[in-house]
Design a protein around this nucleic acid. Structure first.
Lengths: 123, 123
DNA sequence: ATCGTATATGCGCACTCATGCAGATACGCA
DNA sequence: TGCGTATCTGCATGAGTGCGCATATACGAT
């Protein structure tokens, strides 16, 4: 499936690009994960369910901000809420998020971005 | 640093949160992936190296826009460029990106966001 | 000069956060 | 039982910020 490299230039290879809708959904998922507070919240929720106040304490953010973040994550279907009295206990709704977070954090721990060498290819 | 402080309902056992630096790097990675054009470009680069014009054609975007996206990806260390005459052939520099993209696209293909049931838990 | 690529600037849009307020529920006390 | 208060959560608004795109310009190579 992967085209042979090297000589081909403008000719469109034979591999298939993802569908537009798929790409859009993936971008939206990444956009939701591109926030330190939401990453911490989701990481905490992957360990078990918790409430807004507890998550705010864990993430080091204001409860209202965490509530807004949870609302977005809920609309995206990444977390779900269970009401018990005044508290709302949230939990992760998708197992794929665990893999994405683990890979991203692992990548962040092993990446070496020491030099923003913009012109490493020029001479 | 977050930490003790009273008033925390211990619905979650003690577990370790990722380090602050790790979280920021992961968020930055996700932010770079949170764009349809960059997703298409990276997906194409995972199949082999290609030039700006070819990538622009594949992604359906202007060459200048693709060049700017590639500059950001290059500064982040996600792609690398090899100059050959007038052309610059880019290629993916990190194998972790492949896993992230695959999981995100797979997730996008399997997620069912048909129910933005925001108030599934409310009265 | 032409083509491929990189960079600078302005515009429009979306996002985050902080503030304030409202609804809902639990608790205390007469 | 009835009432008032405190707490938890959700929603709306404004300020500040960053991003992507389009345009124009510059550099390098043939």
């Amino acid at each position: 499936m992967a085209g042979m490299l090297g000589g081909m230039h403008n000719s469109l290879p034979d591999f298939e690009m993802p569908h537009e809708e798929q790409v859009h959904l993936a971008a939206e998922t990444f956009r939701l994960l591109a926030d330190p507070t939401r990453i911490k919240v989701l990481w905490a929720l992957l360990q078990g369910e918790s409430s807004v106040a507890c998550l705010a304490d864990l993430a080091g953010a204001a409860p209202t901000a965490v509530s807004q973040h949870l609302a977005k994550l809920r609309l995206a279907g990444l977390v779900k809420g269970r009401r018990e009295g005044t508290f709302v206990y949230y939990s992760a709704a998708d197992e794929h998020v665990r893999g994405l977070l683990r890979q991203a954090l692992f990548h962040a721990d092993h990446v070496d971005r020491g030099q923003p060498d913009a012109n490493s290819y020029s001479h």
